[in-house]
Design a binder for these strands. Structure first.
Length: 193
DNA sequence: TAAAAGATCCGCT
DNA sequence: GCGGATCTTTTAA
């Protein structure tokens, strides 16, 4: 069995940091509603990576990627969607982990209200932008410290290595061969098995 | 100042 | 499976 550390490690070998975010909880407070998901799919992006926003260095948008670990990096894409990352690595390092999918644990009714186009519950949070809609996360959260409400990262249940699949990333056109996507095998909320 | 690309989602076929 | 929606960010001229 794997030991469950008392603290989420966000510095160290980036691949390890990324895979260890699987099973962690993301907790969002919206007024009286408490929402919680388990992270089931992640992707790693870093400075050496042509697919990463940090590849060309620090810009106004990517500034938080180079900031201290444990903050949210939220960006607006395709003219209509938000995606959320967890900034990792020491300050000055442009690396982050994209949260691509989650499994609702609490507040699923609120999430249904946030996702009117979802025909089934799995469609609530089985994609990076869907996750942001379900949890009501927008650009205002970019730079937010994830140890504080109303958006927190919490320890979940440790995921066994044998339940983790490692593969290439989704939706990118550069550095497509990097095996920097991880997901929990068989979890129905994974965007693409 | 302009132009292109983009870590996606949805509806339609 | 495919294409349209829609607009911020970045880069180049």
């Amino acid at each position: 069995m794997h030991k469950n550390t008392s603290k989420i490690s966000l510095v160290g070998r980036p691949e390890e940091v990324a895979v260890n975010l699987l099973g962690c909880h993301l907790i969002r407070q919206v007024g009286m509603h408490k929402l919680m998901v388990k992270i089931v799919e992640v992707e790693l992006y870093d400075q050496s990576d042509a697919a990463s926003h940090s590849y060309r260095g620090r810009t106004p948008r990517t500034d938080v990627m180079f900031g201290p670990p444990g903050r949210a990096y939220v960006y607006f894409t395709y003219g209509m969607h938000f995606c959320m990352n967890v900034v990792i690595g020491e300050e000055g390092t442009g690396s982050a982990v994209l949260l691509r999918a989650g499994e609702p644990l609490e507040g699923i009714e609120f999430m249904r209200g946030q996702r009117p186009s979802a025909k089934t519950d799995t469609e609530l949070t089985n994609g990076p932008a869907k996750l942001c809609y379900a949890l009501s996360i927008n650009k205002e959260f970019s730079g937010h410290d994830l140890s504080l409400p109303p958006l927190k990262l919490g320890l979940g249940v440790a995921v066994s290595k044998k339940d983790v699949v490692q593969t290439t990333r989704v939706g990118i056109s550069k550095d497509t061969d990097r095996p920097w996507r991880w997901y929990i095998q068989g979890n129905p909320y994974v965007s693409r098995q």
